[in-house]
Design a binder for these strands. Structure first.
Length: 186
DNA sequence: ACCGCGATTTGCT
DNA sequence: GCAAATCGCGGTA
C-alpha cells in the first residue's frame, strides 16, 4: 500500500474539535482507512454498511462494533476511493459534566480514549450516521488549530489485514491517546 | 437461512 | 493475560 490522500486528511484532523451531543473533544488520535485500496477498510467491499463512504466527504460514518459499541469516522475525499478516518481518542474540551455522567468512574483523561469510548462520551449513535460535519451547528467539526501539532505514527489498532501499515496518527505525548494493541489474528 | 466473527471494552484470574 | 458480553454484517449454502 502506498501513500494516499486519506493520510493527509487524517493528520489534518488532529487538534481539531469534534462537537458531539452537548460534549466536544479535541481530536488527539486517528486512523486512516483507504477505502477500495485498503484491505482493512470496511469500504474494501462495497456493502450497505459501507455505502456512506462512497458518498460526499465530510460526513459521519458510524458503525456498531461487537454489538455494544459505536465507532465514529469522518468520510474524506476523493469520493472514488471511499476513504475515511476513524476518530480514536480525544480530550474533552466542553461539556465535561455531561461527559462524566455518560462515563461514570472514569478519569477525565480517559473519557474519550478508544473509539467506542469516544463515541459514547460524545453521545454518538447510528442516528448520527450521515451527518454533515461542516454544518453550522449540531454534530460537527471545528476549525483547524492555529499551530501544527507534533505528530507520531504507527500501525493501526486491532486490524487483522494490512496490520503493519503505519496509518495510525496521534499527538505526540498526549495523555488521552489509547494504548496500542495488535489484533490477535494479525 | 445459517454461521462465524469483528476498526472494542471491561473485569477477573 | 484472557475470556465474556452481544448483535449485525457479510460470506456461504
Amino acid at each position: 500500500m502506498t501513500e494516499s490522500a486519506v493520510v493527509t486528511y487524517a493528520r489534518g484532523l488532529l487538534g481539531r474539535v469534534l462537537h458531539g451531543h452537548d460534549v466536544a473533544v479535541r481530536i488527539t488520535e486517528v486512523e486512516a482507512y483507504g477505502g477500495i485500496n485498503d484491505p482493512a477498510s470496511h469500504a474494501y467491499t462495497r456493502t450497505a454498511r459501507s455505502e456512506i463512504m462512497y458518498g460526499a466527504p465530510w460526513r459521519l460514518y458510524v458503525y456498531r462494533s461487537y454489538g455494544m459499541h459505536f465507532c465514529a469516522n469522518v468520510v474524506t475525499g476523493p469520493t472514488e476511493e471511499a476513504s475515511a478516518v476513524l476518530i480514536r481518542a480525544g480530550e474533552v474540551v466542553d461539556g465535561i459534566d455531561v461527559a462524566r455522567r455518560r462515563r461514570p468512574a472514569v478519569k477525565d483523561v480517559a473519557l474519550a480514549r478508544g473509539p467506542g469510548n469516544l463515541a459514547r462520551t460524545l453521545g454518538l449513535t447510528l442516528d448520527d450516521l450521515g451527518t454533515d460535519l461542516l454544518a453550522p451547528d449540531g454534530v460537527r467539526l471545528g476549525e483547524s488549530p492555529a499551530g501544527t501539532p507534533d505528530i507520531s505514527a504507527g500501525p493501526r489498532v486491532g486490524v487483522s489485514k494490512a496490520a503493519d501499515v503505519p496509518w495510525r496518527f496521534w499527538i505526540t505525548g498526549d495523555p488521552t491517546v489509547s494504548a496500542y494493541r495488535r489484533s490477535p489474528r494479525a
